[in-house]
Every structure is written in C-alpha cells, then in structure tokens.
Nucleic acid binder design. Structure first.
Length: 217
DNA sequence: ATAACGATTAGCT
DNA sequence: GCTAATCGTTATA
C-alpha cells in the first residue's frame, strides 16, 4: 500500500529556476504509459533561464522549439538532442522571462522492472536514470510529451512531493556539458546519491568555415 | 541552400 | 581518455 503523495502546484514552480531547482531535489517524477508506471526520485538538476544565459535554449529568444519555456510554470519542456536523445525540463518563471530546470538524474523508485526493460544496456539499477537522456529513457518521454502539465492529476506525467532533502546534503557546481557560463554554479545535486553523474565540461566550438561554393542556379 | 553543432550515451583503449 | 552515432535547429551565405 503506497501513501498518496501531493502533486506540486503551479505556484510551487513559479519562482526563479535558481529557487525551484534545489526544491525539485527529492521530488518524484512519475510517468504513465500503456506499458505501466515508472517513478524517478530526482537527485540532480540544472537551472537555465532568461535572455542573458548563453547556455540556455532561451538565449536567442522565442522559437518554436523553446516556446514552452515562456510558461506557464509546471509544464514539461522536452527537446531532441544529438540526433538520438531526449532531455526533459520543468518550466518555471512565468512572468515574461523564460526559465526551466533540466532534470539530469534520478533514482527509480517505482516501476523498476519496466525501467529495466526500457534500458537493457544499463549495467546496474543505479545507472537506469543516471543522465538526462537515460532519465527520459526510463520514463518513456519523447516529443509528444513536450508541454504536458505536470501539475494536473489527469496528466500522463506528474510531479509529486517527496521526502525533503536536508539542506546540508545539497551540493552545487557548474552545469554539465555546457561550454559557456561555466562560472555559474547552477547545477544542484544530492550528495551521496549513486545516480548523480560525474562532471564534464562542454566541448569547445570550432570556427565556422564558409560554404565550399555558392549555389549556381 | 547548406554546414556546423549540440544541456548525450555507449563502447572501446 | 577518445569517438561514432544521428538529425533537428541555427547561423551564415
């Protein structure tokens, strides 16, 4: 018998991502599909926000891809990356400023068998959702989940309150895999969780080269 | 129109 | 540690 858990509300998720991000640690993201339900306890997240954060998808303004980052808060922002992976964010900060929290890693706390079936290459249960694309993998999140309302009990993907993480167990540092703004410590994680990823700096950009030849016709 | 690159992962040295 | 895989988005021409 499982105890009913409280759904997070839009007002829980409306503050600045720098406030919402640490508050998401310990919460449970639950995804329901025809195959079953998988729940993940979030242990690593990163904040992205505004037009002055060069690492954020919102940096260059509103586009079809990042549309959902402008709110309302509590929606899921899912994007496709590296031609093969999906990453998921919780949208926050709705007052005309785009913002989101990337869900980087978690511990599977519900639907372990389905999670294992979805990620057969995983060497251990601790690694099932260790990394943003692995996390979307165990939850079965894809394109169609972009914009889903996490605060709606009828939604296929929901965000539930969890046991609070002691403030003393929360660590911060630079965001993983980004090459810009590496000085801001906008990554938050739960100290000691085996599902937290290891830090890696973003790859440097090479210079752009002009096209080989103009089109003649 | 076209090239470069990415909020990554798996597999190999 | 290194790199292939693989394609949508973006910048530039």
């Amino acid at each position: 018998m499982t105890t009913a858990r409280r759904l997070l509300t839009e007002s829980d998720l409306s503050p600045d991502p720098l406030v919402v991000a640490p508050a998401l640690l310990g919460t449970v993201l639950e995804s329901e599909t025809p195959d079953g339900v998988v729940g993940v306890r979030l242990v690593e997240v990163e904040a992205y926000r505004g037009l002055d954060d060069p690492a954020s998808h919102s940096y260059r303004g509103r586009t079809p891809r990042n549309e959902v980052m402008w709110g309302p808060a509590g929606r899921l922002y899912v994007y496709f990356i590296y031609g093969m992976h999906f990453c998921a964010n919780v949208v926050c900060l709705t007052d005309g400023v785009p913002g989101a929290v990337l869900l980087r890693a978690g511990e599977v706390v519900e639907g372990l068998e389905l999670a294992r079936a979805r990620r057969p290459s995983s060497r251990s249960d601790n690694e099932l959702a260790k990394g943003p694309a692995r996390l979307t993998g165990v939850l079965g999140l894809e394109r169609g989940h972009n914009g889903v309302d996490l605060t709606d009990p009828a939604s296929p993907v929901r965000l539930l309150a969890g046991d609070p993480v002691p403030a003393g167990s929360i660590r911060t540092g630079p965001r993983v895999g980004v090459a810009t703004a590496i000085e801001v410590p906008w990554r938050y994680w739960v100290a000691g969780s085996p599902a937290v990823t290891t830090y890696r700096r973003g790859t440097k950009r090479r210079g752009r080269t002009p096209p080989a030849r103009p089109q003649t016709r």
